[in-house]
Nucleic acid binder design. Structure first.
Lengths: 121, 121
DNA sequence: AAGCTTACATAGTTAAACTATGCCAGCGTA
DNA sequence: TACGCTGGCATAGTTTAACTATGTAAGCTT
């Protein structure tokens, strides 16, 4: 019983999750840098490239990839991994690359603003 | 009919909203820097201190302040503004100051990780 | 008196990341 | 052979948070 998200609830909780809104950015960037990858590889890449600070759960990843397919940011094709398992490989589209640039600039704009605020004396 | 949030949906949308999870941080920091303020003043301060990049809607602000009261991060007292209007003044508690330190360090940790990822070649 | 502004509040909607769970196939091992 | 482990995808359902829309009320100006 009780699925649902306690999220980073209240005090004294040091778990790190993906800040809402940044998962697309992370996936887009990962595909841009590493090229064609399947879901498991994307999650693994994000986790390792953030030194385990961020961990993408499967229940977040696959729905996000579906939405990105619908938006046309990625295409998918079934294939076989080196470990001989079937997997769905994702590739960035031109629209996806454009979206990545947009998300990066928005991220920098907003996070820069917040960073300036929290650095105020 | 149809309230609800389109949020920053999809392409070509340049509106800036508060990234989920950072509103507490902004409110806490504003109170820490400016001292006792009422709701309107808090919203106004956030907007001006971010050069209008971030705008807190009243429907986000007041519920957040209620939650912060319950969590014990702030106390509230009714008073009269310089413009002779009744208003609810908020003050940081010790727990609130502690929470601020926690939120700042989490923000820096997570945003630092994401920033490193998006700066990858 | 009408209307504007300040100020607080709440109901209802949506999106996103989560937990939990399920399925299926290849591989290793007892 | 059977069993379990791991890799890999998927979905149902929960929660949180910021939003839109709306309502209240009081002071000031005209």
């Amino acid at each position: 019983m009780t699925a649902g998200t306690p999220r980073n609830s209240d005090l004294g909780d040091s778990r790190d999750e993906i800040p809402p809104g940044t998962l697309y950015l992370l996936i887009l960037k990962t595909l841009a840098v590493r090229g064609k990858l399947h879901g498991y590889e994307i999650a693994d890449n994000i986790q390792r490239s953030t030194d385990d600070i961020l961990q993408v759960e499967e229940g977040s990843l696959y729905p996000a990839l579906q939405r990105m397919l619908i938006k046309g940011w990625v295409t998918a094709e079934w294939g076989i991994t080196s470990g001989n398992r079937r997997a769905r490989y994702y590739t960035l589209t031109t629209a996806g690359r454009k979206q990545l640039r947009l998300e990066v600039s928005q991220f920098e704009r907003v996070m820069g603003a917040i960073t300036r605020v929290i650095q105020t004396v």
